[in-house]
Design a protein around this nucleic acid. Structure first.
Lengths: 203, 203
DNA sequence: ATACAATGTGAGTAATCACTCTCAATTGAA
DNA sequence: TTCAATTGAGAGTGATTACTCACATTGTAT
């Protein structure tokens, strides 16, 4: 019941509802009811409903602007000395995939609403896109230099990686319940990473 | 002004608006205004607003249930005899990617709304998912048998392929205008296909 | 304890929503 | 032409929307 708490509860409830129902389909009255606060309280903390979405976006940017982009480089530097570098790469990718999977709700909300609201799109591109692009360039450049990756456009590699991750997440989040999927997420990740690294062709 | 025309005009307008604004954010009055009909006319042809979305879905199923899933197998069977099979594969993938690119609006609407409306999800899984899964199993099984693909789960391969395509489409549809992308879609496709076939690692 | 600002509340508001209803225009068959 | 059915139209409906406002409660500093 602390003061700062209510804002967080509202935000968390909003994320849940935005994910399950969509932004426009979620009413402020429903957020209030589910958060256990009065509707007026929402507008005490957020000027408009859209501002809640923007807060969600900042949450997203915070997570992915830092955790996603900065950490893996530190990891790869500290761990790549004594281990097989391909294994380290796998670990890092798995770590990234797990992060994506864990924040699938945030990702979904931002990616979908990005298409409808240009301001969000710009923010995402500015804060995530460029940073991610630069980091990935480093990431793949490092791999290329050490003879792990072949020559190629880092953007294409990044796109492929994100595509693989998205495919995984979509399958598990959207199709898994009620579908025929019996494999664990961990196993699927291994397959996806292997496929991303080695392709489908016989070598 | 023909009778059957108005229904088509309404549907087409709805697709445009659903794509640019989202389903719930699009009002029936706006559809009516943009389609140049009275609001009552909409409900003469569609019982509810949701029924318009279901009509969009059937449009989607029609296109992808046949054109997308059935035809490529016929193509690969008829063409793989005398041509380099890897080239045939490329052609087919390119064809599929183009189809996805061309129907990106339909795909977006269905994929997003699928998450919110269980009935749509079921229909998509029943009509597209399973069909696509079976076809792809054949597709990759054929490749494995002929020593083109290595052993592996067709589902993972399918997921990777769809991921690659999604990454491409997302990049081009969501980021391209205003972004730093200068490459043609064709070139990006080649890169994506190459990456999907051979992976990022040095062989 | 008192004062003051910050936070919480819920009834209230105008606008908009999906949808209905009544009636006019158009159609096709006789 | 005549009749009946289908289709188009648009004002009207209750419900719901995001948001406001006057007031109650809380926390903090003096």
């Amino acid at each position: 019941m602390a003061r700062e708490n209510k804002k967080d509860v509202i935000l968390q409830t909003a994320i849940e509802l935005f994910y399950t129902k969509g932004f426009t389909a979620t009413s402020t009255s429903e957020i209030a009811a589910r958060a256990g606060v009065a509707e007026g309280t929402i507008f005490r903390h957020f000027k408009t409903k859209k501002e809640i979405l923007l807060a969600v976006l900042e949450n997203f940017i915070e997570v992915y602007g830092h955790t996603f982009a900065v950490q893996p480089i530190q990891d790869i530097v500290s761990q790549s000395k004594d281990k097989d570098i391909k294994e380290v790469l796998k670990l890092i990718m798995k770590d990234r995939l797990t992060l994506i999977e864990q924040n699938a709700e945030l990702i979904w909300i931002v990616v979908t609403e990005m298409r409808y609201q240009p301001e969000i799109k710009e923010k995402v591109i500015d804060h995530i896109g460029q940073k991610l692009f630069m980091i990935m360039r480093e990431f793949f450049a490092y791999g290329v230099e050490n003879g792990i990756f072949r020559e190629g456009d880092p953007t294409a590699m990044l796109r492929g990686f994100i595509g693989s991750a998205l495919g995984l997440v979509i399958q598990h989040k959207a199709f898994a319940p009620g579908g025929t999927t019996t494999k664990s997420l961990d196993q699927s990740m291994d397959e996806a990473i292997d496929l991303f690294l080695n392709g489908v062709c016989v070598q």
